[in-house]
Amino acid sequence: MLIKTVFAGFGGQGVLSMGLNLAQAAMLEGKNVTYLPSYGAEVRGGTANCTVAVSDEEIASPVASSPDFIVAMNQPSLVRFQNQIQSGGVLFINSSLIEAEIPRGDIEIVRVPANSIAEELGSPKSANMVMLGAFTKKSNLVSVSSVIEELKSTLKKKQKLIAINQKALMIGYDLV
């Protein structure tokens, strides 16, 4: 099975690290993975996105023209990507920053108030982790323990950060 996910949002919302986290967790589980970030002048405008492909087989193209999952962390990303998602796919919306109605009936929509939850937690920057938690549960691509393990190895010795991120992740995970 080949599953492609696009994470998109403002630069600084941590969308690239969400994707990276997923990709590394999948690598940890021995799957075939590609991670492709947006880059260059595209990034100047302040938006960022990345595509993660996870598969049991060799991956032909790391680009997703019709992704299975889309995680939209802000309004412009939603506008840009909502029509690309595959029929039957799942659209994850950061409902703290996105209010729009989605005119498509053929996809499933998961709304996660990622920013409000993160703020309640006292760490607004971990909104991406809340979302990643919800994504991990719903998408079932990798186990949450792999995501946590990966988090620990990227943050290395920053115990406090690990604790906050892990907490945010689990809240998101338990949400769906």
């Binding site: 990276l20 990709a23 690598m27 075939n32 993975v33 590609t34 991670y35 492709l36 970030p37 880059y39 991956i59 790391p62 680009v63």
Partner: peptide, 9 residues
């Protein structure tokens, strides 16, 4: 460009 930006095991 793609090979350079892409990450895989």
């Amino acid at each position: 460009a793609m090979l350079g930006q892409m990450m895989e095991p």
